[in-house]
Write a protein that binds this DNA or RNA. Structure first.
Lengths: 245, 245
DNA sequence: TAGTGGTCTAGACCACGGG
DNA sequence: CCGTGGTCTAGACCACTAC
């Protein structure tokens, strides 16, 4: 591959250009979550570079959790459908250290107009159509999480409360299967807040109890924000677990 | 380098053995934070492997933030002294998005016996001697953070309130400079709590205000826990910022 | 046995930093 | 100018998976 006359990235290392082309294929759904991508040798031939160069490109995409390598089998597009990746972005865990088992109860799924704030986060215009979902998640029969979710209507057209109630497993699996939208990364802003009347009722805690407020923006390929969540966690018996490196 | 008769790791890939040996040198303070380590060629000669193998070992250590590569200059041992790495583990930031400027006020530095809980986290025995430090950090004259810190006395012998009050900059820089202890990673458990009388006074908030409780265990080389912190953040005007990948 | 990713090598050349 | 890390190649062999 020559360094001039490149379709996507115009300069910088060859492997960066390969990365960009693989990313473009992912974004274009040429390879779907769970699928194997072509072998390193095939890609090397396709892009007319050495296997080592393809290897470095794939290594970096795998480090970003976009691809998953499996020795002897191939390289696969990451998916939230998979065992162990089901709740990849959930940092809440019981103080006891056991695994958290959450049961969904969806309360609402409304088609509304975006306000300024949500529009800004989703890179839409105020007034653009969006979907708003409310849910409560329970562990061992006790409500632990109250969550408001906002989605752009365009990408998630047709989503209904019934579809949500039929769901078992994480919403990101649903987004992948039904709306061809794979979440790549997210940003969270965390605060401590007091329970108001509504929150107290949803989470069955006293008014004035301390709750963890977690605002999340989730992004798909190309750094495109496609979901906003505002969760409140009851952290009496569980905590938000974070690793710093 | 032969695959048998290895001093440190006994098998697995060559570059893993190189990693282990570089790590051992770091742990033994053969190269100090801020220093350059030998060049790739030198290390390749020393370990009798190719440059590419050393390269892969260094790449992985750099990805873990133990080393820092600088093209044209060399590879350096990571340090908390450096501009931009000063508050590498601090995730608190103003809602406005500006940079947080914190001023220290140390309240106490006592030599005490460890209780069960702290001993367990530090992998000591209950009753072992430890140091306990209290401090308040303020931004623009307003108290934002109250923090209790526990250190094993053995490693930090001689630390005094005066030394702390002379400190400008992060404590991890002090640990590095005075106690040859570099922090490599940390784990935090986050909850929402209510301000009691003491916290209300330290942070100048009403009793019953919501505060973020952050318990941190910090580790040096070899996964050795050497510091416990329990912080309470006032998140009225700032938040804990987290990226999920 | 064939095909995949994983390791290792040796050598060429580039890009950056500093004397 | 030299020494550093950064890129790229070509080829050999290993380790794992599946048929």
């Amino acid at each position: 591959m020559s360094l001039i006359s490149e379709p996507i990235a115009s300069f910088s290392p060859l492997y960066e250009q390969i990365k960009a082309m693989i990313l473009a294929s992912l974004q274009a759904s040429e390879w779907l979550p769970g699928d194997a991508i072509p072998s390193e040798m095939e890609l090397a031939a396709r892009y007319a570079v050495s296997q080592g160069t393809v290897r470095k490109a794939i290594d970096e995409l795998a480090a970003q959790n976009l691809l998953v390598r499996r020795q002897g089998k191939g390289t696969f597009v990451a998916t939230h459908q998979e065992e162990g990746w089901q709740y990849r972005f959930l940092r809440l865990e019981p103080d006891s250290g056991e695994k958290l088992q959450l049961k969904n109860q969806f309360l609402a799924c409304e088609y509304i107009k975006s306000d300024e704030y949500i529009a800004h986060l989703l890179k839409l215009k105020a007034g653009d159509p969006i979907i708003r979902i409310d849910r409560v998640q329970s562990s061992a029969g006790r409500p632990i999480v109250f969550e408001e979710i906002w989605l752009p209507e365009g990408r998630f057209k047709g989503l209904t409360l019934n579809a949500l109630n039929a769901l078992s497993g994480p919403m990101y699996a649903l987004y992948e299967g039904e709306y061809a939208t794979h979440m790549v990364r997210a940003e969270e802003k965390i605060k401590a807040v007091l329970a108001n009347d509504d929150l107290a009722q949803y989470l069955q805690v006293p008014v004035g109890a301390a709750l963890l407020s977690v605002e999340r923006v989730a992004f798909t390929y190309g750094n495109k924000p496609v979901e906003i969540r505002h969760a409140r966690y009851d952290t009496a018996d569980q905590h938000y677990d974070n690793k710093l490196n």
